[in-house]
């Protein structure tokens, strides 16, 4: 195993031993050497940058969505891809004469924020509960297992729709859960279970390992063991699930938008575009569907492949098994 190797530092003349690379540095090295992973990571980063543009603009007091919405081209309603208006029209126009290219680019912000926010809630939640359940065992474990089995009993999509509907018009502490926050929360609530399950199993395995026993013998408190010795060793599960959950969240957003309960109407998002395309396509207006699916396809593909490579890098045992 690479992490147990102690390498000679070639630059050191004295020939003294340098400490070995850490687990994380090792994984990072594996990942950066993987060309495919880096290519797809670059694609993901491009999307992230595109998604950040409206955010940065709004910090500067400029609302890109409004600007795009206002720049309607009345003569080009439902017009197909054209080169007449320069770059604006290369993906065509929607019903209101708004640029589909603009819509697709702004949609990246929605999709990325949905993926990010849902997972930033779900993954830490799953990890925390999983680690607590796995480490403490007993009643605590029973309770947490009960909670996630309960959630798993309800088909995911039904739970998603149900939560989104339940949040309709609910405002807690000034946060309107009928809109985007509700969407983040609904996606998070349905996706923490997988992380929790995996982390729990891994924690149960780690708990019995010698180094944890040793820490316990030294008189370390239970919480500190969990924090210092177990958490770093289950962290990779969280990172992997974050990258894979991203894909799930993006796809769920599309599904919910199709059912008119996802992103609020009027917000440019790929889900809303695909949902609108349902009616458009019969009239032969294929460009909205094509651009949304294309944009989504690329980012999902990139996340999928990058996530797989990330898993291979972080969890080399899995690769050997597969």
């Amino acid at each position: 195993m690479a992490e147990t190797e102690i390498q000679l530092n070639p630059n050191a003349d004295s020939g003294e031993l340098t400490p070995g690379r850490s687990l994380w540095a090792d994984a990072l090295r594996r990942l950066t050497r993987d060309k495919v992973a880096m290519i797809f990571f670059a694609i993901v980063m491009v999307y992230v940058l595109i998604a950040l543009v409206p955010l940065v603009a709004s910090w500067c007091g400029f609302n890109l969505v409004d600007w795009w919405d206002a720049a309607r081209n009345g003569d080009f309603r439902d017009h197909g891809p054209t080169l007449q208006n320069g770059i604006e029209g290369i993906l065509g126009y929607d019903v209101f004469g708004r640029s589909v290219l603009g819509k697709t680019i702004l949609g990246a912000n929605t999709s990325m924020s949905v993926g990010f926010m849902a997972n930033i809630i779900a993954v830490p939640l799953g990890m925390l509960l999983g680690a607590i359940a796995g480490y403490y065992g007993g009643k605590v474990d029973d309770f947490i297992v009960w909670v996630y089995t309960t959630f798993a009993c309800v088909p995911g999509i039904i739970l998603l729709i149900a939560i989104k509907f339940a949040f309709k018009g609910v405002t807690i502490l000034g946060v309107d859960f009928g809109g985007m926050p509700g969407l983040y929360l609904a996606l998070a609530v349905t996706s923490w279970i997988g992380t929790c399950r995996l982390v729990r199993a891994e924690t149960m395995r780690l708990r019995e390992l010698d180094y944890v026993q040793a820490a316990r013998c030294c008189g370390r408190g239970r919480f500190m063991i969990l924090l210092k010795h177990i958490a770093p060793n289950v962290m990779h599960i969280g990172i992997i699930n974050f990258s894979l959950g991203f894909v799930g969240a993006i796809q769920s957003e599309v599904m919910l938008s199709f059912l008119d309960i996802g992103v609020p109407a009027g917000t440019p998002s790929w889900g809303n575009m695909i949902s609108a395309a349902d009616k458009d396509l019969i009239a032969g207006h294929w460009w909205q569907l094509a651009s949304a699916v294309g944009a989504m396809f690329l980012v999902v593909l990139a996340w999928n492949i990058f996530g797989d490579r990330l898993r291979d890098a972080l969890d080399p045992k899995l690769k050997n098994a597969g």
């Binding site: 599309v254 349902d278 019969i282 699916v293 989504m296 396809f297 593909l301």
Partner: peptide, 21 residues
């Protein structure tokens, strides 16, 4: 199969229905 996974179900449905029309 990775490509297939990356296309949302909705796109399959819409395209399938369009073809059937």
């Amino acid at each position: 199969s990775v490509l297939g996974m990356c296309i949302p179900l909705l796109a399959y449905m819409i395209a399938g229905q369009y073809l059937m029309f």
